[in-house]
Simulated scan of single mutants.
Amino acid sequence: MSGMIQADATASFAAVARRLADRAGKIAAAHAEMRALKTRGDESRWRRADLVWPLFAKG
């Protein structure tokens, strides 16, 4: 059929994988910083939005 829509699943999967890897990196960085602040006994870690909600922070 000539009028059928074709999708490139490989390109779609690559984009999803890239976004998931980016999100995982943000979460891992926030977790590492939280652990470092906890080790130092710094309670400000609970007031930092970029650490509490790493996927919602700007930037």
Rank of each mutant, 00 (worst) to 15 (best):
M1C: 03
M1D: 07
G3E: 04
M4Q: 12
I5R: 11
I5H: 02
Q6A: 13
Q6W: 13
A7C: 03
A7G: 09
D8T: 10
D8Q: 07
A9Y: 10
A9F: 15
T10D: 04
T10L: 15
T10P: 00
T10Y: 09
T10C: 05
A11C: 07
S12W: 12
S12T: 10
F13L: 15
A14M: 08
A15Q: 12
V16Y: 02
V16R: 11
V16W: 05
V16M: 12
V16T: 11
A17Q: 14
A17K: 13
R18P: 05
R18S: 15
R18T: 15
R19W: 12
R19I: 08
R19F: 09
R19E: 08
R19K: 15
L20H: 06
L20M: 14
A21T: 09
A21F: 04
A21K: 14
A21S: 15
D22Q: 07
R23C: 04
A24Q: 13
G25I: 00
G25M: 01
K26W: 13
K26H: 04
I27E: 08
A28M: 02
A28P: 02
A28K: 12
A28L: 07
A29L: 07
A30E: 06
A30R: 04
H31Q: 13
H31L: 13
H31N: 14
H31V: 05
A32P: 02
E33Q: 03
E33K: 09
E33N: 01
M34S: 07
M34C: 05
L37S: 05
K38W: 04
T39N: 05
T39G: 08
R40V: 03
G41D: 00
G41I: 08
G41E: 02
D42K: 09
D42N: 11
D42I: 05
E43D: 13
E43A: 14
S44R: 14
R45M: 12
R45D: 01
W46P: 01
R47T: 05
R48V: 00
R48Y: 03
A49G: 09
A49V: 06
A49E: 09
A49C: 00
D50R: 03
V52M: 11
W53Y: 10
W53F: 15
W53K: 14
W53G: 06
W53L: 09
W53I: 01
P54E: 01
P54W: 02
L55Q: 06
F56D: 15
F56S: 15
F56P: 01
F56Q: 14
A57Q: 09
A57Y: 03
K58M: 09
K58A: 15
K58G: 15
K58C: 14
G59R: 11
G59F: 05
